[in-house]
Design a protein around this nucleic acid. Sequence first.
DNA 1: CTCGTTAATGAACAAGTTGTCCATTAACGA
DNA 2: TCGTTAATGGACAACTTGTTCATTAACGAG
Lengths: 191, 191
Amino acid sequence: MRNTKNDRRSQRTRDLLRSALIELMLEKRYSEITVQDLIDRANVGRSTFYSHFLDKDDLLIGGFNTMIDALSPFNKLQPAAGEPLEQLDLTPLFSHMQEHAQLYRALLHGGGLDLIFSSGQSQLQRQIEAYLAALAPQPALALALIASMMTGAIFNLVTWWLNSANSYTPAQINTIYKQLVLPGVRGSLQL
Amino acid sequence: MRNTKNDRRSQRTRDLLRSALIELMLEKRYSEITVQDLIDRANVGRSTFYSHFLDKDDLLIGGFNTMIDALSPFNKLQPAAGEPLEQLDLTPLFSHMQEHAQLYRALLHGGGLDLIFSSGQSQLQRQIEAYLAALAPQPALALALIASMMTGAIFNLVTWWLNSANSYTPAQINTIYKQLVLPGVRGSLQL
DNA sequence: CTCGTTAATGAACAAGTTGTCCATTAACGA
DNA sequence: TCGTTAATGGACAACTTGTTCATTAACGAG
């Protein structure tokens, strides 16, 4: 049995195309990048591109999903019973983003976030909502709303972090996040 | 002296194209909409489109800037000296968004937010940052960061609001926003 | 190392899109 | 009323997209 995905040639092609996309997104907006640009930059045949990906969006989403998957240990987010809200630790998430800062920076610079919002952010949002549900029996506001706000704050915090001098560690970003967001959340959860 | 912009024909064409864009954004993603779609829907000649707008993005941004301009009374956001943080009132902003819910819903549904982020959000963010600067002599965190977080929260709150049953009034949304966001902000401003 | 399998290639393709140009027509408003 | 100005539509070259196919070359199981 031959494993298609493990073929060195396939991996090489995929890597070349993903790198090309990141490179190009640092140079111009995602919407302005054409398949032609990608295959030129990756030095890959046109038909090769289409045998790996459906289109440009598929390449972007696929590359991002790879990252998301790498984040699966983050599923340990769920709190123990009676655990205080302060226990929330997003450090693994921020560490992951720091490791792949190049990709996230490209996303922030080149746009293409609309596509990610539908997969990435909503997934994170669901996890946070589940976390809150486990803690709060009687929330004063809809959990979906609070989770949405918390996710948005993560997103904007990371934007600021990656665009600034980047001198903060993931643990520090985690502290800042909690300092800025948790007081309001605690009140709304009526803990 | 003839005023080009006031010519009924020009206004009619612009209105038709803007409406067509909103309609189409409720049907499919912004990136999938072509100039051809727009002029078909608006029933307008191809060359007419290009005599009014540079391209598709120009139409989107232009339409949005019109909204932003309508928001200029919001510039009274600046606080009086010594005014407490609780005085912050974003009700006019939320009212405006409710009035133009159709446009904002189209934006949320169809994507195209990347383009707006660069003009709309950054403007709001600057106003909030100036507001904070007038209040906080010794902030514990960079004001840009706090303002970014606050803007992101507004954005996500509105997303939730416009997608939900929409039963809340702008004043209620303003209250929810303050309840959720201000506690963390107050701590970080060291008031 | 061998050899059957499988990916990459590149060229060609129709169909669609983009932005521009221009002569003609018709609506506007001073 | 009449000169000005916007809309029209057709035509245009340049480019993009996604597909097909015969050919070449890299791969890896045995």
